[in-house]
Design a protein around this nucleic acid. Structure first.
Lengths: 118, 118
DNA sequence: ACAAGTACTTACAATTACGTAAGTGCTCCT
DNA sequence: AGGAGCACTTACGTAATTGTAAGTACTTGT
């Protein structure tokens, strides 16, 4: 999205640059409990392609949100986990998630339905 | 970004659908204090084109975040303001913004610089 | 020998978001 | 009469993001 050209007054732009990929929130969410291998992550995020998963992991790594640990074994074993910054991001994101549940598109559709139904 | 096809376990996807446009955070931020007219908004968000501003306002309106009040005058006068949901979103977004200031790309670059310089 | 799994990697196509430029009908100002 | 401002609206083009399909080198299981 490359929002960095804008002179955002606060860090919001920077945060959105990090988390606003189509699959990134899901990836971070899956990692919040324990480290996961590439294949596990692929299975836990249904619909994502290997290429995209890999790309977004690289970006999250570059942004200091996930840590990549290569065990240098054969067959390959690589574990992805959240850095402290990643864990903090996961926390910071909870307020947004709650807003989504309460006011987001789906929630509003539900509310409208409830209103019309009775 | 159309994340809605994904079965997000929480409302995060919904929230990001609403706020993740390139200019949307800035727009919402500008509206947090007082209602603004289209032209005011355009001047307060330098770099945005009329088309994009209009599009993103429409989406924010459809998502229940901003309210559009047409005074039905001539020359036209239209005021945009935050709905209660919009105000809540603005609040929810603060945690993210703070994360950005502390851990975001720019902040990390700064930190790295400070480390190498002194 | 052959299929399947590991974690990537490449080339290319499709989709989506964003941007540029111009036009609409109206009124006020000079 | 000419220009500027209001709030849009349209047509079209570019750039970014995501997706599809296949291939790499290696090992394990049948």
């Amino acid at each position: 999205m490359t929002r960095t050209t804008q002179g955002e007054t606060c860090g919001l732009g920077a945060a959105l640059d990090v988390i606003a990929g189509k699959w990134k929130p899901t990836i971070v969410w899956q990692l919040h409990a324990r480290p996961l291998r590439f294949g596990e992550l692929r299975r836990l995020v249904p619909g994502i392609s290997e290429k995209i998963l890999f790309e977004q992991l690289r970006q999250l790594e570059a942004d200091g949100v996930v840590h990549r640990r290569d065990h240098a074994e054969v067959p390959p074993r690589v574990e992805y986990s959240l850095t402290p910054a990643g864990a903090a991001l996961n926390t910071a994101v909870h307020a947004l998630a709650e807003w989504g549940t309460r006011h987001g598109r789906a929630a509003r559709a539900q509310a409208a339905l409830a209103e019309s139904t009775g």
